[in-house]
Amino acid sequence: MTAEIKFSVRRLCAFHGRAESLRSITLDVPDHRILGIIGPASSGKTTFLRTLNRLNDLIPDFRATGQVLLDSADIYQPDFDVVGLRKRVGMVFALPVPLPMSIHDNITYGPRLAGVRDRQQLYDIVERTLQAAFLWDEVKDRLHSSALRLSGGQQQRLCLARVLAMEPEVVLLDEPCSGLDPISTAKIEEALVALKIRYSIILVTNNTKQASRVADDTAFFLMGELVEHGLTEQIFTVPRDQRTGDYITGRFG
């Protein structure tokens, strides 16, 4: 792994009240690669992902210890600019959540918050990001109609475009295809592979096949612990840990 390190996670523990949901995670996320995170339900994958943009802060009595360094700056420092962090680290959720406004306004939500007002500039952003998410051709004639009228697969690609519009450095995806059909899934995967040239991508998925298809590196989480982390090829062919092999071959989870 020669690539530059984007996120560097050191001994990260997370608690929901008393319950420990992440146990001393240490992990490096390189730039311009796709990291796939696999593991059974409630293994801490999603919690981990949401510590990276501090979205867990919204949950009452959530607590995290350890370090999360983004470009060597600890994002859990008290004076760290959380709003700025979320602009640099975009997130796509498991279920597509288009805001109840037009396609155009969904995508320009982030840029407008950041102060972009120029209409031509906003339109350019819409076109560029929709093309990057492979959605442009399907919606270019109805940019001003409600985003709620798109199909599920289209909505999820819209959410991806909406994240790209903020020009983030990292894109987090939380089981983005869990509610989608195979064709929509393929389109999202195609987009992700094309996007890693510009971004660092972390993809949480409950579909091991998906990780093997698109991820460069793969991490396996189990009950709040990082069991194994390495090149995808290695994880899927010669896992070092027995439990990884069991999970991948479908013996549990």
Partner: peptide
């Protein structure tokens, strides 16, 4: 108002106030 709308807004870099006003 669905909680997910707020999550999306925050994840797109909105402050709490901006989330209240816009979403």
């Amino acid at each position: 108002v669905p909680y997910s709308y707020r999550e999306v807004s925050f994840s797109l870099g909105a402050t709490r106030w901006a989330t209240v006003v816009k979403v």
